[in-house]
Amino acid sequence: MPTVSLTINGKKVVADVEGRTLLVQLLREGQRLTGTHVGCDTSQCGACVVHVNGKAVKSCTMLALQADDSEVETIESIANEGELHPMQAAFKEHHGLQCGFCTPGMVMAAIDMVNRIPNLDEETVRHELEGNFCRCTGYHNIVQAILAGSKAMQS
């Protein structure tokens, strides 16, 4: 069985996987990091978004072996000793979630957005969310949360 060796949330991980094992399976089933969700399995919903080498990707559409030698960050890594990441805090403050299923992917996508685009405006945020679906909120509060989180991250 092939071995994958990578860094997950700052921790070195070596694991036996199959060729077909998806990154999200390694995270959820192998590492018990169940914050990353699987919403569609057809590469569309973005519930599975994590960062690989600093970029937001859909972990359901990447083989674990493709992440060999990479740095992976999941939703579990972003709070700092119990203190919410500014983007998480903004989602809480602005009611950017209802059931919370899409939220880990939304937050990881939002942080990636801020990393790439310093001055976000509402229209840009709406476009940038094309790969993240929410069945509950109607997006309005998610957009407000991301705009606020973006300001907080940069202050």
Binding site: A56, D112, E130, G131
Partner: peptide, 9 residues
Amino acid sequence: IGDPHVRHR
């Protein structure tokens, strides 16, 4: 093309 995550890969 697609969305940001698709464009990253």
